[in-house]
Design a protein around this nucleic acid. Sequence first.
DNA 1: ACCATAAAACGAAACGTTTCGCGAAACAAA
DNA 2: TTTGTTTCGCGAAACGTTTCGTTTTATGGT
Lengths: 335, 335
Amino acid sequence: MTTTIKDIAKYTGLSISTISKYLNGGNVLERNKKLIEEAIQTLDFKVNEMARGLRTNRTMTVGVLIPSLENIFFTSIVSNIESMLLKEGYSTIVCDYKEDPRLEEKKLQFLFDKMVDGIVLMPVPGNDNLVKEIIARGTPLVLIDRLVNDVDCDVVLVDNLNASYNAVEQLIIRGHRRIGIIVGPQNIYTAQERLKGYIRVFEDYGLKVDPNLIKYGDYQIESGYHLLLELMKIDPPPTAVYVTNYEMTIGSIIAINENNIRIPDDISFIGFDNQDLTRIVKPALSIVVQPVQQIGETAAKILLKRMRKDQKGFPVVTRLKTELLLRDSIKKVEG
Amino acid sequence: MTTTIKDIAKYTGLSISTISKYLNGGNVLERNKKLIEEAIQTLDFKVNEMARGLRTNRTMTVGVLIPSLENIFFTSIVSNIESMLLKEGYSTIVCDYKEDPRLEEKKLQFLFDKMVDGIVLMPVPGNDNLVKEIIARGTPLVLIDRLVNDVDCDVVLVDNLNASYNAVEQLIIRGHRRIGIIVGPQNIYTAQERLKGYIRVFEDYGLKVDPNLIKYGDYQIESGYHLLLELMKIDPPPTAVYVTNYEMTIGSIIAINENNIRIPDDISFIGFDNQDLTRIVKPALSIVVQPVQQIGETAAKILLKRMRKDQKGFPVVTRLKTELLLRDSIKKVEG
DNA sequence: ACCATAAAACGAAACGTTTCGCGAAACAAA
DNA sequence: TTTGTTTCGCGAAACGTTTCGTTTTATGGT
């Protein structure tokens, strides 16, 4: 049926243990090495990962647990993680918990039962004990995008605070004072950080934040649409608006266009996440771009390292920089 | 360390094989059953899937191979598949091949090496031999969304032809004759079908198709944006337009709003895929909605069946209906 | 040619299950 | 009771690797 290490042994005349040694990078005579390689080729041998795993207690499998598979930010990170891990022979089990803490727990248990060698997790707020449990079990874990308090754990973050700070600062520099922000739910770490950056830059410039200009959405298209209109109804309306994720940016753009609000004459605009929007929307939209590729790659790399039992620098907190693309959606206003 | 079937045997005083029999649903005395269950509870026993797999040649693992993880249509299908499979104890290994046939091949090989028990595939056009290879190996396979010629295989499709037919028919019924279509790449099965439906309804109504009104895009936001503008530049412009996927619909909407084109006065509009747009865009957008949940569930169900060695009805071709949401983006025109 | 030492190959046990054939026990019918 | 039949439990082998301690082979210095 399928060819095993035994068949290779027979073919080469060597013993099973020698073949195994070869497979695991041990010392084997050059001559035998060639022989084994030939055998592997002609017999089309593939290591049986289950047999190997049974002995070594490794599954060559990594679990990735994200809030939703319907959010491009998350899935493009997953895509990058998957590519990196595959290169090292790991397969990626993707689970989404649909933003539901109970599902998160259930799926995490599932990953444990499957004895994954490592886990990448974007935790839901509040479920901190879950994270502690993973760590207690000794399963290598990398957190992504969201921080958990009081826990030592490798984590890959985006510098959301400075992302906001820099974006809003550009507006302030250009004379804007009434700057609206459409921000995510305040129990979500990234949303908190993005709001903090907004507030801090006002403080640093000695300006007062008008709480009416802070709108809390749910990271969906629809809330972007409605909150933008709410902002514009305020009297006087803000002269600029900063929208803090992709879906809400799309929603805001639709609202703006539909209502013949002009960018940047009626309002200056900075959006989030999707670089394409810069090219598509007229005038070209200014955008905060997150380094999705780097996030995925960094997370994969550190997880691979930990799975190799390399604990150097633990816990490593990586905070990646965003990029601010300034285009034509911002105008100067007179102080 | 971890508790094994051996520990359960010791705890209960029964033999290993009896425990195994219990685990696999064999006949065990009620009294012993209770005893075993208690032991499993208190010792927190979990079957070692690798040891089991080594014996049974099953990995309890399914591979899902999709063109891209950055397309919501695909990922929401994956989400549903994953949920269904998890209920039966299967884990889902997700791979995306970034629309690249060579990557598709590589990742498929990877899935083979991992000895997945089944595969769900959205094949790239042209790589038909890949599909044949999977079938030759005897690995249960379900195709999704795209058909492959000359191959017997279970497949879950969307009735794209009638989706288009019905949508465009509504436009014709309301008096439209010059109807633009923004369609996907013509080497992609779904795009072909969507175009066919458009053409057929014209034929059925004895109308002539104007090839200038057919615009071929690449399913990305940007092409929706540009192609819509191209259509509007035609003299005379179409009175209605039908856009055939989510990203291009978004692009078109942005183009329309930016250029102060009015829906439905200047142009009637039918979009695709994302139900939310109905609620967000003003006036409410008419949309063709694909049954993503059903697609995922159907695919998972039939795959589970095949993995149970149940070959009933093979090959099953499921063609799911789309839903047409008619809203305010269509107006009547005088014949 | 000889010994010491290093390098390479070997054999057997172990990982945690399932499965198969057989024996024991339980039960029903005679 | 005896016999026949069904139900349940048991022991041992097997799945394809890795690993460890040991034996064999190669190497090099004298």
